[in-house]
Computed example of a mutant assay.
Amino acid sequence: MSETCNHDCSSCGTTCGEDTRKSGDMFEKPNDLSTIRHTIAVVSGKGGVGKSMVTGLLSVAMARKGRHVGIMDADITGPSIPKMFGVTGEVRGSQAGAFPVASAGGIDVVSMNLFLESNTDPVVWRGPVISGVVKQFWSDIIWNDVDFLFIDMPPGTGDVPLTVMQSIKLDGIIIVTSPQELVSMIVSKAVKMASTMKVPILGLVENMSYFECPDCGKHHHIFGESHLDNIAKEYNLDILGRIPMKPELAAKCDAGQIETVEDIYLHEAAEKLLELENKK
């Protein structure tokens, strides 16, 4: 049995990750009271590229388009979404399910930090337990009338990304990268994992793409020249945005005010997501 499969391949005659996803048999059902129209996972092959910030900016972009947005923070051991949105308080509910906590701008958020006594308490769990919690965020949370649910994945291609791709019917993933040459190899891993799991890739977003001098407006490539065009061409993927290094953007995230950011640099990504509405 392959690690990317939850059945005995030798007895069913199906190649792991192949057409089993198309039947829907492997997918977990959301809560009976949930209505989720589109589910998008935001992934990165490695940590430190700003995946959570991109998730937050994508959510803000779609909320500004008049869509009701939810964020499932699947980075259980390193949650940062509540901090960016200034969301505090506890997730509450009943036997029917629990409700996410709404941000000031009406974006619904569920994160492990909303279940902890202190947001600095570590989550010291093994992979299977973490994967189980992610499934509960899908099946036990009531996502009420959500147009776009973004899943902020932990970095890499480990337990949680595998669990999400196997268990949740995704409309696609967005891969976050940065300009360093090393990252092109890491992006390739994420692309190949998505291909193996038959999950559509909507495109690439490059974070920390450049620094714009506030005095002369010149772009400085702090981490070297971007390799994004080459990666996109190699895998025939769309480039959905390039986010510069901006101290004020980081400051807004640290202050829990990401919803007040003026320019989010993800207009192409927002248009790509709106195209999904025309396909259903």
Rank of each mutant, 00 (worst) to 15 (best):
E3C: 03
N6P: 00
S11M: 14
G17R: 07
E18H: 12
D19E: 13
R21V: 09
K22G: 02
S23M: 05
S23C: 06
S23L: 10
E28D: 13
K29I: 00
D32C: 01
T35Y: 10
R37K: 15
H38R: 10
H38Q: 02
I40S: 03
A41N: 04
K46P: 02
V49H: 13
G50T: 10
K51T: 04
S52F: 10
V54K: 06
G56E: 08
L58H: 09
S59Q: 06
V60R: 09
K65G: 08
H68N: 15
H68V: 15
M72W: 04
M72K: 07
A74Y: 08
I76G: 00
P79M: 13
P79Q: 11
P79A: 11
S80W: 12
M84L: 03
V87T: 06
R92W: 00
G93F: 03
S94P: 01
Q95K: 14
A102W: 02
S103P: 03
G105S: 13
G105D: 14
D108C: 03
V109I: 15
S111D: 05
S111H: 01
N119P: 13
N119H: 09
T120Q: 11
G132P: 05
V134H: 11
K135T: 14
K135I: 03
D140G: 05
N144A: 14
D145I: 08
V146L: 10
V146Q: 01
D152N: 05
D152T: 06
M153E: 00
P154G: 12
P154H: 03
P155E: 02
D159C: 05
P161R: 13
K169F: 01
D171M: 11
I174M: 13
V176Y: 01
T177K: 12
E181L: 09
E181W: 04
E181G: 04
L182D: 01
M185R: 14
S188I: 00
K192Q: 14
P200A: 12
I201N: 11
L204E: 14
Y210L: 00
F211I: 02
F211A: 02
E212H: 12
C213I: 14
C216N: 11
G217N: 13
G217L: 04
F223C: 08
H227G: 05
L228E: 09
L228C: 05
D229E: 15
N230R: 13
I231H: 06
A232M: 07
E234Q: 15
N236R: 10
G241D: 02
R242P: 06
I243G: 04
P247N: 09
P247M: 15
L249K: 09
G256D: 09
Q257N: 12
E259G: 02
T260A: 04
V261H: 10
I264Q: 10
A270G: 01
A270C: 14
K272Y: 12
K279C: 02
